[in-house]
Design a protein around this nucleic acid. Sequence first.
DNA 1: ACCTGAACACCGTTCAAGT
DNA 2: ACCTGAACACCGTTCAAGT
Lengths: 232, 232
Amino acid sequence: MAAKGGGAQGKGPQWQAGSVPSLQQADSEPALSIERIVATAVELLDAEGVDGLKMRRLADRLGAGAMSLYWHVDNKEEVFDLALDSVLEYRGPPQGIEAADWRGAIFHMLEDWRASMLGHPWSASLLPRRALGPNILSRLELLGRILSGAGVAEADLNGAIWSLWNYVIGATITRANFDLSDDDMAAAQQRLAHLSEKYPTIERARLLLDNDWDGAFRKGLDFLLDGLVPRQ
Amino acid sequence: MAAKGGGAQGKGPQWQAGSVPSLQQADSEPALSIERIVATAVELLDAEGVDGLKMRRLADRLGAGAMSLYWHVDNKEEVFDLALDSVLEYRGPPQGIEAADWRGAIFHMLEDWRASMLGHPWSASLLPRRALGPNILSRLELLGRILSGAGVAEADLNGAIWSLWNYVIGATITRANFDLSDDDMAAAQQRLAHLSEKYPTIERARLLLDNDWDGAFRKGLDFLLDGLVPRQ
DNA sequence: ACCTGAACACCGTTCAAGT
DNA sequence: ACCTGAACACCGTTCAAGT
């Protein structure tokens, strides 16, 4: 407390989008800024995973002294919050989708969401633990609007939104984690095979090996929507 | 490597259940054992959360020297693995459920699973990152067997199992995290209300406040099962 | 076989100080 | 306003040593 300026700077997450970065020094590294910090944090997370993000390493990558970050950011948690939300922006449906096609709109948004998270495998597990940033809130807002327009009753809206959220989060976290370690998966299946007397069904199903993640995701989503949105 | 004995001891997770603990000293603390370590780790995790589990504190609680744990366990990760699986044992359906009632059997197992994880709020987020222990595998095996008996085709078994896994994991992780911080939730909703021009739909839905988590979980599960298991 | 304290190599963060 | 190095209070883990 009172360690830094005391203005609006450095107090909680900065959700401002795209404010033009100030003039950069012509010669060496550009000045530190929230934008550069967040972008570099995402790079580091992509390259090394959640445990790879250390404040000192982040500062290093930015060509800054180890402790310079703490003027721009309260703590490491805030770096996570900002990196997470920065990766979840939604640019909207492509031109091909009709306004009336609520199912297509939902599919596009949720599959895009899942793809964004799989593109940054650290992000999915982080999402449920962190505050809801503006990009996430926008997606939820859009989801609610589409569902509402598709005929979901006001009283059911909450349950419907969370059911879809839960499904997407669960599917993506699971996939992202199994994705990270193909070797581990094969090893696990190996161990399974060794115990096939105890787990014959999942051994037979080749649970860890043959799953069509993308197809299963779409199929389950279809079923959920069938239930959540009443036929008209 | 080669720091410890070299026998079967301390090499990877010990999934042995209920081997009788050896004689305890009559006077002070009982001897260290995997069972005591795991049980105490669960206590500590329940009381202080994932970040509260430190090797030194765990040893303290056990009345042992700080480094004694490392003879029984390879590292902290193994403590997590063991604590996690120890909390996920399934004792089977109650007497009331008929053998033919596959839907009731699935509901019971999955709701029990969810309840177990909510009873140890650190467990849900840990599960997708860790190896699949025997208790988890048993649940998956049971799930596969029931689905298979209910008429799910061999080729669809994988997708069905993972869809349900994803749904349960997603729902529980979300719930466990929001559960941990009622204040945060109210604060978040406060911030939302302040921005209700930007997020009118989710503001109107009182997204964070009025959700009936248990009801929504059952409903979504119903819809998924409707889709996954063909009508006969 | 089982337990231990000292010591190492980190990390996040504070602080007083620089420009 | 912005950046910095030294220093503090931790942690997980190794190691050589005890019984």
